[in-house]
């Protein structure tokens, strides 16, 4: 019998070829079905800005944008993302869309070791794309799944709050903030 199940079970841990658009560039690589997206990004594509922390969706260090939405790259197998558009902290940095957030994090010491920062920035960018002027409670709520063991969060909330206000101001002034 040329059964689907039989064939599939014979192929345990054989690699599959997946294609993504990562940070605007088409890429293809060979992955095992059990390889998570974060491992694929870091090990295969050498994009090590995305950090693997808890690897069970609790800490938020591995957030990336998958088809424009923030997701935990440790909770997605690379094969599930075949055909998707992925934007990592490297792409968001290069394009300049989060330059104001990065500058404000830097200015306010909203990081120390920096391990959580890529996830924080991906999450902050999504929050500000959905809520033009979040209050501090809303910012804290949005960051509830991002652990920072250095800062105590206060400076991170300050930084996001400041950028939200600055972006609103430039929008109102017709500045066309991103």
């Amino acid at each position: 019998m040329n059964g689907l199940g039989e064939t599939l079970l014979d192929e345990v841990d054989e690699t599959l070829r997946v294609r993504f658009v990562v940070n605007g560039r088409k890429v293809a690589c060979e992955v095992a079905p059990r390889d998570t997206l974060v491992d694929c990004l870091r090990d295969k594509l050498e994009l090590t800005g995305t950090h693997a922390g808890c690897e069970m969706g609790a800490c938020g260090a591995c957030l990336v944008q998958l088809d424009g939405q923030a997701v935990h790259s440790c909770l997605v197998f690379a094969v599930q993302a075949d055909g998707a558009r992925i934007d990592t902290i490297e792409g968001l940095s290069e394009s300049g869309v989060i330059a104001d957030l990065q500058a404000e994090f830097h200015r306010r010491n909203a990081l120390q070791c920096g391990f959580c920062t890529p996830g924080m920035l991906v999450n902050a960018q999504e929050l500000l794309s959905q809520l033009a002027q979040p209050n501090r409670d809303e910012i804290r709520d949005a960051l509830s799944g991002n652990y920072c063991r250095c800062t105590g969060y206060e400076a991170i909330v300050d930084a996001i709050d400041a950028v939200a206000k600055e972006r609103s101001k430039s929008r109102n002034a017709g500045g066309g903030a991103s």
Binding site: G3, L4, G5, E6, L8, L9, E11, V12, D13, E14, L16, A32, P33, R34, C54, E55, M56, F77, V79, D82
Partner: peptide, 30 residues
């Protein structure tokens, strides 16, 4: 040392009947 799944195969179903068929063939393993 790490938090990694055991090896498995992956099948992306396009229709319900494909998903049910794959499950029927793999049984408890799916």
């Amino acid at each position: 040392t790490a938090v990694k799944a055991r090896a498995f195969s992956y099948f992306r179903a396009a229709r319900i009947d494909q998903a049910l068929d794959a499950h029927a063939r793999a049984g408890d393993e799916a």
